[in-house]
Design a protein around this nucleic acid. Structure first.
Lengths: 199, 199, 199, 199
DNA sequence: GATGAATGAGCTTTCATTCAT
DNA sequence: AATGAATGAAAGCTCATTCAT
């Protein structure tokens, strides 16, 4: 049992380090030796935990999606209006992009762009279902309460995911004139206006 | 002059072919020999036109941004309402994603990731200014005419770019239940509602 | 003594499992972890029984040669003609190739190639003497009884070993049109005709 | 055309060198860098001629089979008795084993033992058809002339291939008391007695 | 301008063996 | 005896780029 715990801990530390290196340097520019070195671990031993670079990348996206999904799940459980929920979700996302940018960047620069890596094991969106499910719950709730217009889920999902991702991309490129946190109000409002039910 | 023309033509044909291969297979999975082979050209000769793989990728993003920008420019010059312009721009984007997906995919899968490739020569957004400029003109016009709310340009730009890109990503992953063209109305409306001036 | 027995039993079970894996997948394609896993045993512990992969392979060839030799020894002790003995030996060999092919395949695919592995410890034919000795007894007997021509032993030994091995190879490649057991009569006759004393 | 010739020459020189290294050190113990080094060639360039180690091994067996087949073909075309043909074939084989042992050793130590390498591309015996075809012609001729007993071809083929291969193996192990050429008469006679038509 | 053989550094992955527990 | 995480050297293979022709 002690061994199991230790192995699980090491597994997670590999995910953390790989997540960071992948999101900063990209999937192809990050090598397994890079990851192993940063962990003070041999290359061979790393393969005892993840049997290929692709599988490591897949485990990271699952992990990341889970973490993001949980955070949104907390908002979903709050007893507040849909408008306020939007604000909170945007806040969570941008705060994360500021304080722990790896996860968001991983979505943008690794998951989005390296089809071959995720094609088989993550087909459809099985590896990001943790995140999607919560957005779906948020949206359905809002519609049921009459606060959001009833429309195709993906029209709403694309707005959330694309808009937030786009802003984080602009931040990453250093072209936003203001700190990203100052955009929270504007963007929350835009999303709310876009999706709210007609007066 | 004849020679110049011939050289320019060949340059463009290289860009076209490389654009397609990069957007389908990714930047790192596409090799210079791959590109040369598809052009019935030697690798050595290809280097007479573009002195490195990175530079080729940079030229492609400039070219793509120019083409997209021109299409939006046509809409900007039309004598129609901002609401209608939004619809036309979304239409252009999705039609392109359907009929000539390479350019959009290039934005998503090559430019978005592969930071290192574009870091120096395309810092800021100099390589995509063609596209951004037109969106900026569209937005400023709408605000001047009182049809759009006056807000930070990047809040609006992120919405456009991110939302449309996100939808095309979902299309590429084959998870949209309907054809992408059927989303044009919904998404145009969402964007318009998000940005329009308050009643 | 109980401990000794247990250790001997485990040693033999390792040989059995390794024999099978080596003969099916080849020496280099079979890993020590593979063998340990199939035995529900740790790799570290396996090294308590055999101090290297090479030594394990050497022990297997000795074991196999012993077993084969014993079977032929039984035939040698029978009170039958040399012609009948040949038939019985071919029968034993082909029946074995059909029902327990590992041993024969081990000769063909592990011992025959992988010189380096057997070079030192098994130089000459010390590791296969069990088998050779019996063939030698068979041959000398036949000559003494006047039923076989007196010739260089290796001319006869090469015929036996090579012919039978060759047939099993053809069987392994699935190119024999008939079941191997149907070749017993033909091949026994060919061997007998080749070696018998002149009329 | 000059280029084609040069490339073909280089291809053949790679085959020659790889054949030798493979047959002496075995398939798995011979590395691509080994082969490249012996050719004063870079590893990458070697891959311009053979796209994988397996494919190189397959091309070698085809080449070897072709060469051996041609030599036997010459004997087949001679106007001599079957008995004499057997002698000549054995002579060719053993002379080759003595003077250019690589080819025979390659059959024994590479082709025979590394199933996985030849499984797909050389399934059945397509890569050794050059050799087999000539043995088949020899055998059919002998039967037609009434000099050989009519029996299943593989019974005869296994005798030839296995017997000769076995003797070369014994030679390789340095356990033959006499030079291999001194076995030619004995072995030719044994084969002839095994296959000849009944008096 | 055009060719494509050649380079060589660098990648992912494997595995016999060890050793602290 | 038994465990299995850890090592690290070495393998097969790739590819941007060069340069003699």
């Amino acid at each position: 049992m002690k061994t199991v715990d230790k192995k699980a801990l090491k597994r997670e530390s590999i995910i953390q380090v790989a997540l960071q290196l992948f999101s900063v340097n990209g999937f192809h520019k990050t090598t397994i030796p890079d990851i192993a070195a940063k962990l003070h671990m041999s290359v061979g031993n790393l393969y005892n935990y993840f049997s290929s670079k692709d599988i490591l990348a897949q485990e990271i996206i699952k992990y990341t999606s889970e973490v993001l999904g949980e955070k949104i799940g907390v908002v979903n459980d709050m007893d507040i209006s849909t408008e306020e929920k939007i604000h909170k979700i945007v806040d969570i996302y941008f705060t994360m992009a500021k304080e722990k940018p790896e996860m968001i960047e991983y979505f943008l620069r690794v998951y989005l762009s390296n089809r071959e890596v995720f094609a088989d094991e993550c087909a459809g969106m099985v590896c990001v279902s943790g995140f999607i499910t919560e957005i779906m719950i948020f949206f359905d709730d809002g519609v049921r309460r009459g606060e959001l217009r009833n429309q195709d889920f993906f029209s709403a999902f694309g707005l959330f995911m694309g808009y937030l991702g786009g802003m984080v991309f602009l931040k990453g490129e250093d072209i936003l004139p203001k700190d990203i946190s100052e955009y929270i109000d504007d963007i929350s409002r835009n999303i709310y206006y876009a999706l709210r039910s007609e007066a």
